[in-house]
């Protein structure tokens, strides 16, 4: 037996289709916790017009770990399908609350670059919203710091295989 597994950490987006029933989320989060797998982000929502839900899980690990994650997910009785194709459109959303007393010079251009808009505003703040891939969201959240945001919220990734 040769050990050919590389120990490199790989990031992977998994789309898991499960029956929409009580407790499936705890089965999946319990599986990750119990076996020591990472969850970078996790989103859940019903699949339209079915009784399935889709979980989008962003995880990382070496090849063997990722293979086990997929197999263990499959092994759960309510799992219908695990999609791990490398071909995904992946989007994440972020909301950022910025105080109104800031100088908004350049904000418009920045929002444009990240598919963003102003989602809401109040007496002394505005909330901006962006949707992009996870890496770019990270960049955006770094860049927006110069407007001294009060609060930032990320959604976690959603993905669709293509």
């Amino acid at each position: 037996m040769k050990n050919t597994i590389k120990n490199e950490e790989i990031r992977r987006v998994l789309s898991v289709i499960v029956t929409n029933e009580d407790g499936v989320l705890s089965r999946i989060s319990g599986l990750f916790a119990g076996r020591g797998y990472n969850i970078d982000s996790l989103t859940v929502a019903p699949v339209p017009d079915t009784d399935f839900s889709r979980l989008t899980i962003v995880t990382c690990g070496n090849e063997r770990v990722l293979e086990q994650i997929v197999k263990q997910l499959h092994k759960l009785i309510p799992t219908y399908k695990v999609i791990e194709s490398a071909e995904f459109v992946e989007k994440e959303m972020a909301l950022v609350k910025i105080p109104l007393n800031e100088d908004f010079n350049g904000l418009d251009a920045m929002l444009k670059a990240y598919n963003g808009t102003i989602a809401n505003s109040g007496e002394n703040f505005i909330v901006v919203m962006v949707a992009d891939n996870a890496k770019r969201i990270e960049n955006f959240l770094k860049a927006i710091k110069k407007y001294n945001p009060i609060e930032m919220v990320r959604s976690g990734s959603v993905a669709m295989d293509i």
Partner: peptide
């Protein structure tokens, strides 16, 4: 019979 058993420990 269990796919997750295969390759779990050794290649």
């Amino acid at each position: 019979i269990d796919p997750s058993s295969i390759g779990k420990i050794v290649d």
